[in-house]
Amino acid sequence: MAVRMEEVLSRRTGDPSSTDHPGHRLELSTEDGVTKIFGFWMFLVSDVLLFASLFATYVVIYTHTANGPSASELFGHDVSGFLAETLALLTSSFTCGLATWEMHQGRAGRLKFWMIITLLLGLTFLGLEITEFRDFVSQGATLQTSAFLSGFYTLVGTHGAHVTLGILWMSLILYQLVRFGLNAVTARKFYIVGLYWHFLDIVWVLIFTVVYLTGVM
């Protein structure tokens, strides 16, 4: 799943002589596709900074538990919940990769199949996360309890909101693939939502490490 950043960077679009370049890949076959994929990479930079700020804030305040539960009390007694979330999301990233691979082989049917699997895994992740949050709240650990919990719900919740948006977005792309078939435009759209999906997976790896593993220790 090498991301073709160098390809995106090396091709210029203002150049009329490059109009007829045969793209190596469907999503890069038009100037429009190349520019939009580049633009989306730039968006991801800003999203990295957004999460970086949330992580920084969390790290500053995660020991500030006031009289509420600490991270180890909250996450330590049952690791199965966040482990299951992690497995669901990491697997969904893999299936999203398979979908991209099938797209590059031109197999629209299998692309749609793997997209559906990815969406189902994403929904599983969301369901697990909501259950986890409800469980914590029922133990009296709410957003208002302490700075630590404000940081926890906001950081993990922002990621969850991104996943929710990703599910809505990927469903919309799936609809367009069914309606209009696989072409340069729908390929570009799927490729971009795929980038977003993998990015959320990377953020989750950091959440898993910084929030849950550090918390359990």
Binding site: H64, T65, L143, Q144, A147, S150, Y153, T154
Partner: peptide
Amino acid sequence: IDRLFGAHFFTMMYGGNPMQ
């Protein structure tokens, strides 16, 4: 979020840190 939902990122109580 502090103001609307009562979180404690930057409050003086419950471990908030205004300098952040």
